[in-house]
């Protein structure tokens, strides 16, 4: 009996080994990025990988941040991405609720029409979108960068699928009790949507955080430049070693990582129940 238990334990743990190896392979580039950001600049040019720096250079971070206006770039990115996240959470929920729980003529078509924007290549709409932003007087502003990202088609779809599964009986009961729609949304829908909202928050933040082409077109001052624009032009200056570029890359990873940690509990549920099950 004890042998069996031991065998069982052994099989449980032995299954972990190949999995851990796989996970390690996946994480390796991230580990490389992180250790490289502490490496001496010269090491990058010797093309032999030293996994653990023999001498640590935390000053890479300070140096990197002092190039261009990186603290400002990060602040700009944070402001824009937080607004985009908020916008998606609010508007996708509203739209998702409307599309899931109300019938109106053309409601299904509307969903398809919204989803079809996902198939459109972004590159060619840059100029017309810029024209819209220009008409609104939003060139070189936070609302200019964030505006076109405030609602994502996929987010609307996600929320609709999720809210669809909340039994309508609850809503009916609440309506009979005289609750208004906004109150229903707040007290019935939202508490049940935490997981989907976590997914939506994480990915809308990340997508906005990743934006490169759009800010490039709409912004022309350091005051509003986001960090990807600084990171791409990082090498233009003499004396910017790649180790410092990696330091910026690590710093750029941190906010999304922190958001991931904060949302992790809710996320786990979100993935159990997310949209595709419907």
């Amino acid at each position: 009996m004890r042998r069996r238990a031991m065998l069982h334990a052994l099989s449980r743990w032995s299954g972990l080994a190949p999995l851990a190896a796989l996970a390690f392979l996946f994480v390796l580039p991230i580990v490389w990025m992180t250790t490289t950001s502490f490496q001496a600049g010269e090491k990058m040019f010797q093309l032999t990988t030293e996994w653990i720096p023999s001498v640590w250079h935390p000053e890479n971070y300070g140096n990197a941040l002092s190039r261009s206006a990186f603290p400002r770039f990060f602040l700009n990115s944070a402001i824009v991405s937080a607004s985009v996240m908020l916008g998606n959470v609010v508007f996708c929920t509203l739209a998702g609720y409307g599309l899931a729980k109300f019938r109106f003529p053309g409601d299904r078509l509307l969903l398809l029409v919204i989803l079809s924007t996902l198939m459109l290549p972004l590159e060619v709409t840059l100029v017309p979108t810029f024209l819209v932003i220009h008409k609104l007087g939003w060139v070189n502003s936070y609302q200019g960068i964030a505006g076109p990202l405030l609602i994502d088609a996929f987010g609307v779809f996600l929320m609709r699928q999720f809210i669809l599964k909340i039994p309508s009986d609850y809503l009916e009961a609440a309506r009979i009790d005289g609750a208004g729609e906004l109150r229903i949304l707040r007290s019935i829908i939202l508490p049940q949507c935490k997981a989907a909202l976590a997914v939506l928050a994480l990915f809308s933040f990340r997508d906005s955080w990743d934006q490169f082409l759009w800010p490039l077109v709409v912004v022309s001052r350091d005051e509003f430049r986001t960090y990807p624009l600084g990171l791409v032009r990082f090498g233009d200056d003499y004396g910017n070693p790649p180790t410092e570029q990696m330091a910026i890359a690590v710093l750029a990873t941190l906010p999304v990582f922190l958001l991931f940690l904060v949302l992790q509990r809710a996320l786990r549920k979100g993935f159990d129940l997310s949209a595709f099950k419907g």
């Binding site: 796989l22 996970a23 996946f26 994480v27 580039p29 991230i30 990025m33 990340r206 955080w209 990743d210 490169f212 990807p228 990171l231 791409v232 890359a249 690590v250 750029a252 990873t253 999304v256 990582f257 991931f260």
Partner: peptide, 11 residues
Amino acid sequence: MFLTNIMPILA
């Protein structure tokens, strides 16, 4: 493994 998804695309 999920971390690969969180890294900024530029990085």
